[in-house]
């Protein structure tokens, strides 16, 4: 190998590695430094007597004093009572409950879930997420990741 070719190769290698290093640095810079791992926090939302006996009730839980709210559905169905997240498992829109159709319907792409949250139509890949719910001394707590 001639000296000139060798030096050309060296220069090329230096330039390529500089480009690789600087683009990795840039990508690292752009990636968020801390993606918060959400812990489940239990929020007190209503008293035991207020739990629905039958059917679906939508609840807005105040999650901080800045007025931010999170919606949940409390479902009473066949002797069971549980909390469902309204976040559609397809692409994250909020579903609403249709009393007429007795189903949760997503306005974005027509995902449909039955009262238990199981998919009965449309594109969602999974059932609606069940949120942890606890009754303690007559008060109902629901766990949210916020």
């Amino acid at each position: 190998m001639r000296r000139r070719d060798f030096l050309k190769g060296v220069v090329k290698a230096v330039l390529v590695s500089m480009a690789c290093i600087s683009s990795s640095v840039a990508a690292l810079f752009i990636y968020p430094a801390s993606v918060k791992q959400r812990e489940i926090t239990m929020y007190e939302c209503l008293s035991e007597e207020e739990l629905p006996r039958r059917g679906v009730r939508r609840l807005d839980i105040e999650i901080d004093n800045k007025g931010r709210r999170a919606a949940v559905f409390i479902v009473a169905h066949e002797d069971k009572c549980f909390a469902l997240s309204p976040v559609c498992t397809h692409l994250g829109c909020l579903v609403s409950f249709s009393r007429h159709g007795n189903a949760f319907i997503c306005p974005c792409h027509g995902g449909k879930y039955d009262v238990e949250g199981n998919v009965i139509g449309g594109p969602p890949p999974r059932a609606l997420t069940r949120l942890p719910m606890r009754v303690d001394k007559g008060k109902v707590y629901i766990g949210l990741k916020v």
Binding site: I30, Y31, P32, V35, K36, R38
Partner: peptide, 8 residues
């Protein structure tokens, strides 16, 4: 998602 949104 994290990359595009810059967070969760």
């Amino acid at each position: 998602i994290n990359f595009v949104r810059g967070g969760f």
